[in-house]
Amino acid sequence: MILKAHLGLLLWALLVGLSFPAVGLISADLPPMLLTALRFAIAALALWGLARRAPDRWPHGAAWLLYGAMGLCLAGFFAAMFWAAHHATALSMATLFVSVPLLAFLFGLAAGLERRGWRLPLLLAMGAAGALLLAVVEAEGRASVSQGIVFGRGEAVFLLGCMASALYPVLSKWGLARGWLSSSAAVRTFWSLALGGTLIGALGLVVEPVAALSKMRLRDALVVVYLGLFSSAVTFWLQQRATAVLTPAAVTAYGYLVPFVSMLLLFLQAPGRLGWEWLPGSVLVLAAMGLLWRDDALSRLAARNS
């Protein structure tokens, strides 16, 4: 089960990395929040086929509040990302996003889900440094680099979104530990996506022009369906499945591999971009992930032998 969780998160990183080029194929004049709500709706419908088979598919009591909080985390992150994209530089957002595993560790520590110590925060910092180096190299020559890393209103809003993203696996793990959430990863993913999509859709109806959806072309619709099925349904299901056996910090640490996947895709599309400047970030990311896997394996081996 542990090995499946790690392999699943590797697939998660690959799917998330592949989603960025797909998002770029969508027409820029379409409302992003409403598109995300549509994407979440497609994902939830796809997952319902699995979720409805679970005996505990319907939440009870406090579970509704917890699923609502998890959905609010998803809606909060995407809403913050869309708003901040017009008020913050790409490099500043990339810098803040690599803080998510560290934030998840701190939230998990406060909730009693992480073990105290210096080694895990150090490895997470190593992975964050590597991912940031890859983001800087990828953005080299853009206006975002020349503007530098700043912290203003846009960055503050996106930091709140990153905190919401970090809190999502913590709430999932916390609810599982108390028996409030379904034991089925499909059920947990379904309700968080359904409620999150409802929240971000409601916000989109208020701040975005609904009529703009009429401009959607067939290609746009196909990309949204792809993102809903693979970049939402499958990725969040893989994350929820891993959350049942790994800590929030370990789950979110796989986000460091996303810029590494993006780098590999860039090399396939433009081999001329390959250079030594990509090496330091790649080495740091791969070293951090390798050490995290090693520490996880050793700790579980020690637990079995004790």
Rank of each mutant, 00 (worst) to 15 (best):
A166R: 03
G281T: 14
L176M: 12
A211H: 13
L274C: 09
L284E: 05
A185Y: 04
S231Y: 05
M163C: 12
A194T: 15
A221S: 11
G281S: 15
L176S: 09
C162H: 07
R219Y: 00
L218A: 08
S262C: 14
L181W: 05
G275Y: 12
G255C: 07
E277T: 14
G290I: 10
L274P: 08
G197E: 06
S282A: 15
L284Q: 05
L284S: 07
A211F: 11
G228W: 07
R241M: 03
T198Y: 13
K215C: 06
L286E: 12
Y168R: 02
F267G: 04
S182T: 07
L193R: 06
T252Y: 06
G179V: 11
F267I: 07
A249H: 02
V224F: 12
E208I: 10
G175T: 04
W278I: 06
L238H: 02
A250N: 04
C162M: 14
G281A: 15
R188G: 06
P259I: 05
L246Q: 01
L176K: 06
R217P: 00
L229D: 08
E208T: 11
S172C: 11
V283R: 15
S172P: 00
L292F: 07
P169E: 10
L171F: 03
L167E: 03
A249W: 01
R188D: 03
W191Q: 07
F236L: 14
G281M: 10
V251F: 05
T243C: 04
V210N: 00
L279C: 13
A221V: 06
S282F: 08
V283W: 15
G179L: 08
S214D: 13
T252D: 06
W278H: 14
T198W: 15
D295G: 13
